[in-house]
């Protein structure tokens, strides 16, 4: 019995080397990279030629239309990803085999990599970039080119990606389907809150702060929600716990008991 299981196991391994879908991985990496290089190129060209005066007709052509397109696509993607993942969810989690579960953990890692790339481009690249764009234009509209990209494109993208990752885990991975992971909520909902916080930012800049001072207390809402990225620590601990349960027997260690919240 054991020998035959082992043989089956080896056969499956031969069919599917490793648990990672490399094609998906590289599609994610290439997709985010090339998309953002395109956006950066667009900023370079149309920021300077059409983005310096919000009252010019070309601004409406190149930036306001870009903005409206973003908004439509974002709502469509957000709804579609959530609906698709929910509709195709695994209804009987107990039927998920350990091998299948391991595959899904790796698939989930690719989702988290996508989230990492989205967070990087949004929170790091486009956010600090805004500081230098404000040295070239007077703060004339909330929809200045760097904001059209930063607030209304890159933040929604990481929100949608985080939402996708969370929903993937919730609908496919047994451990995340049976309760709601607190650190997962933190790492997805916290950075999401940066977008509503734009309301505070624009209110403040409209009514009393014209200059570009990054360290102004007006911006601390962004800071607070940025901390929530640390929720990744707890989330990874949860994943390690389950993977060690799955992997333990093959490594000759007894499955460790499920961890209890200690803090």
């Amino acid at each position: 019995m054991a020998a035959s299981s082992s043989a089956i196991s080896r056969a499956v391994t031969a069919e599917q080397p490793g648990f990672l879908n490399h094609r998906n991985l590289w599609l994610v990496v290439a997709g985010f990279t090339f998309f953002n290089l395109f956006v950066r190129w667009y900023e370079e060209v149309y920021g300077w030629s059409a983005g310096l005066d919000a009252f010019a007709p070309e601004f409406k052509t190149y930036w306001m239309n870009f903005l409206y397109t973003e908004w439509v696509l974002e709502i469509v993607f957000f709804s579609y990803i959530g609906a698709y993942l929910w509709k195709t969810r695994t209804r009987d989690m107990d039927a998920v085999t350990p091998r299948e579960e391991m595959h899904r953990h790796f698939h989930h890692f690719v989702w988290l990599l996508a989230y990492g790339m989205a967070i990087y481009w949004g929170a790091s690249f486009y956010t600090e970039q805004d500081g230098t764009w404000h040295q070239t234009v007077i703060r004339d509209t909330d929809f200045t080119p760097s904001h059209v990209i930063e607030f209304y494109m890159s933040y929604p993208i990481y929100i949608i990606t985080g939402w996708g990752a969370f929903m993937y885990a919730r609908t496919r991975i047994p451990m995340f389907s049976k309760g709601v992971s607190l650190p997962y909520l933190v790492v997805v909902v916290g950075p999401f809150m940066i977008l509503p916080n734009v309301g505070l930012n624009e209110w403040g800049h409209t009514f009393w702060w014209m200059e570009e001072l990054f360290v102004a207390p007006l911006h601390y809402g962004f800071v607070f929600f940025g901390w929530m990225a640390l929720g990744l620590c707890g989330l990874l601990s949860q994943i390690f716990e389950r993977i060690s349960e799955l992997a333990g027997p093959a490594l000759g260690t007894a499955p460790a008991p499920a961890s209890k919240a200690s803090y």
């Binding site: 290089l37 950066r40 190129w41 370079e44 060209v45 300077w48 030629s49 310096l52 005066d53 919000a54 009252f55 010019a56 070239t136 234009v137 007077i138 703060r139 004339d140 509209t141 200045t144």
Partner: peptide, 21 residues
């Protein structure tokens, strides 16, 4: 990458926001 892609583009700046005040 970006500069090469835009080397045919010549910058021309119009007003930059003073009308918003």
């Amino acid at each position: 990458v970006v500069v090469a892609a835009t080397s045919l583009y010549v910058p021309e700046a119009s007003a930059h926001g003073e009308k918003s005040q």
